[in-house]
Design a protein around this nucleic acid. Structure first.
Lengths: 231, 231
DNA sequence: GGAATGCGAGAGCACTGCTCTCTCAGTAGA
DNA sequence: TCTACTGAGAGAGCAGTGCTCTCGCATTCC
């Protein structure tokens, strides 16, 4: 209508089908992890297995799509939750990021394992995933940048930094946190590691007979990290 | 001879065979990860696939054996490396633990992924692995215990700890680090997470376009962690 | 020496990822 | 509107998988 070509049924059905395959595959992720069965997905979809190959050239390509979606879903969640906090409440923003990463991971443990667990053997992540993968950590970087430009980073006596470390830290901070002192950026990188290390330890069972009160322990840890970083 | 029963050939051959299966399986771990093929292992061994089942009841049982070996290998390495440092050089001992964990992981990335990566779907680690899994962190605990009894933990103003966190921290420290202040034990737990988080991030590719000087960055991080803990 | 046991071979079952061909419905150009 | 083209599902097939079962044979035990 209005000069538009008639709706392209094929294209629309194709998009829907692609989404549906991914949705079912995500469900299978829960029981079979990264070696989910294409044939089982096809069965659930009421279609013969070879039909899947019209949409994804291989199982790896399906996994890549799931990985990309997972990174973006996590990134979106973190961005949304952080945006809802008052800009000058730096600690609140920090905690919002930490909580939302963990919350997202607890809701979708298998998608988290897909992106932050051991890499799938023989699988090489294509470049597309890199941009999506940086969304979460970028939010963290923005917080310390905001802290720095409003003069609210604590100035502890900075640890001495080897030249190589300074180089890495500067490059890492140059785009999103250029006004942050090197020592603070370095600590933020450590805090980033601790955040995901914590979530991974909890999800992958390393805390099993060690920490019982997961919520409180995590919150405490992340609060300490915020102070350690200097906000 | 000398009253001993004749050597039990069967038993000896069985032990050798079991070792050989695990060795070959470890090799396959590198290319196929946790879903290595029993049949391929059998082929490499020059034996038909059903023969493997005389030694391991299932692929999961083989994996369990590999996991157990990995934990013990890591634990042994860490213990040996830490023992070689002078007892009163607390920072040196701390760094020895961190370096040896990372060194071991870089040498055997696939065994590391097996024990610290995403859990194998549908696989439940038996209780046997728990004891082996704690060896590495126990060494860390011993260091802060030694620091405490010789009066060498720094006394920063301790962070406030929620009651639930205190409970977890006390239980975690009660056996190996009973004389350590709660706040220090809590920080040591965080440092433990950061240590393995760092190694996982590096191995699993999360540091890929971020940190180039891995050795220096890791050493810096762990040094900061030691000071953060208070030794 | 005879009975019991341990072990490898081999066949077989149900499953996997993936390829290829066939057929038919939707689409585009005249 | 008719025709040629293209995209999509069905189905068969290949090589591989974990695992089971049975069958011989060698070692061990009594």
């Amino acid at each position: 209508m209005y000069g538009m070509k008639a709706t392209n049924i094929r294209a629309r059905v194709r998009a829907e089908m692609t989404e549906e395959i991914k949705t079912i595959a995500r469900r299978h992720l829960a029981t079979d992890g990264a070696n989910l069965s294409l044939r089982a997905v096809a069965r659930d979809l009421g279609v013969v297995s070879s039909a899947i190959y019209r949409y994804f050239a291989s199982r790896d390509e399906l996994l890549t799509a799931l990985i990309l979606d997972a990174y973006n879903s996590l990134g979106q969640t973190v961005e949304d939750r952080e945006r809802a906090v008052a800009r000058d409440d730096l600690t609140g923003r920090w905690m919002a990021v930490c909580d939302s990463v963990r919350g997202w991971a607890l809701e979708r443990p298998h998608e988290y394992a897909l992106i932050y667990g051991s890499p799938v053997p023989g699988y090489q992540a294509p470049q597309d995933t890199v941009a999506a993968a940086t969304r979460a950590v970028t939010v963290l970087g923005t917080i310390i940048q905001d802290a720095a430009v409003t003069g609210r980073v604590r100035h502890d006596p900075p640890e001495p930094l080897a030249a190589e470390v300074v180089e890495d830290v500067r490059r890492a901070g140059s785009v999103i946190a250029p006004d942050v002192p090197d020592a603070v950026t370095a600590r933020a990188l450590s805090a980033w590691v601790t955040l995901f290390g914590s979530v991974s330890f909890e999800l992958f069972g390393q805390l099993n007979q060690v920490v019982m009160h997961r919520d409180e322990f995590f919150a405490h840890q992340m609060r300490v990290q915020a102070r350690f970083v200097g906000i």
